Amino acid sequence: MTDAWEVRDWRIHVADLYAEVRAEPDPEVAHRMWAHGRAALLRDHPATPVPAGARASFTPEVAPYDPALRFVVRVEPAAPERREVPTPTDGVVPFERVGRVDLPGLGGLDVWWLDSYGGGIFVPLKDASPRTYGGGRYVLDTVKGADLGGTREALVVDLNFAYQPSCAYSSDWVCPLPGPGNTLALPVDAGELHVPVAG
């Protein structure tokens, strides 16, 4: 079982990686840095969700960068909604909808606030592609450091940075997954694609 200090160190590395991503002015270069950094963490870090037997040879599949899937959009008002996600490890994880972003040509995604200690903006994504994890992926999860930058008036939502949650790799992890307001009817073959692992 992963211990608290390993998880803490993982989060430090994730936050540092996203700080480098935000500091790089070329999104395609930032994406390469991110893909390389994520691969190293998933393969080598003690807190990786990749099962031990699969780590040494594990390489995530990341789609080539597509500039058409990078959006800088206003977070529009949305009717208040609360989601309470029960988990066996963290109890009930509460989220409050704080807005919605429109991604031209694709549809809209709800923007959530993690309404518990620490807080954070959360934008999960589920799409129609058979190449992505069926449970969905995360684009932003700022409480864990996955933050592409921006403001309410101009939030960076770059689907090339969509990544698999820990539960995609192992049932030891429990993850809040996208609801209907974070489901796109079209395929989004960007970011991390689903690579089944056995360990």
Rank of each mutant, 00 (worst) to 15 (best):
Y18Q: 06
K144P: 03
P86W: 11
D115W: 04
I12H: 13
V101G: 04
V14C: 09
G118N: 08
V7I: 11
V156W: 08
D110K: 04
A146H: 13
E76I: 05
G149R: 04
S171A: 13
P60Q: 01
D66Q: 11
D16A: 14
L17G: 06
S116Y: 00
R137E: 07
P124R: 06
F95P: 01
P67N: 03
E61C: 00
D3F: 02
L41T: 06
A23W: 01
W113A: 07
W5P: 01
F71K: 11
T2L: 06
P77N: 11
A52T: 15
D9Y: 03
L148D: 01
A162H: 08
V75F: 03
P80V: 08
E153D: 15
L106V: 13
G134P: 09
L69P: 02
V143C: 03
G107M: 12
R55L: 09
Y138P: 04
R74V: 02
T2W: 01
A162M: 15
R131I: 03
D66A: 14
P165E: 05
A15P: 05
G53R: 10
A63M: 00
P180W: 12
V123E: 02
W5C: 04
T89V: 15
W10D: 01
P86E: 13
V156K: 10
P49W: 04
A4F: 08
V123G: 05
E76W: 06
G150F: 01
A198C: 12
V156A: 12
L109E: 04
H194W: 09
P46S: 11
V123R: 01
G107L: 07
P80W: 08
L17A: 08
A185F: 03
D44W: 14
D44C: 13
D90F: 10
A190H: 02
K144I: 03
P86F: 08
D141L: 11
D9A: 09
S129V: 03
E192S: 00
Y138L: 13
I121P: 00
P27S: 05
F58P: 02
R22L: 10
Y65G: 01
H45N: 12
R83T: 09
V98S: 02
D115S: 13
D66L: 05
P130W: 02
Y65T: 07
R32P: 02
V85G: 06
Y65N: 09
H13Q: 14
T132F: 02
L125Y: 03
G135T: 15
V92P: 05
G107C: 12
A162L: 12
V157W: 00
H31T: 03
P27H: 07
A63W: 00
P94E: 04
A39K: 01
R100M: 11
V123L: 12
E24V: 08
R82D: 10
A198T: 14
D110E: 15
K126R: 14
E6S: 12
W112I: 04
V101A: 05
A52R: 15
A146Y: 12
P180H: 08
P67G: 09
L17D: 07
A79M: 08
A63E: 00
W5T: 04
D127G: 06
Y169M: 04
A54F: 12
D189M: 03
V195Q: 06
L42K: 00
P187I: 01
A47V: 08
V85C: 06
P27C: 07
L140H: 15
H45S: 10
E24N: 14
A39H: 02
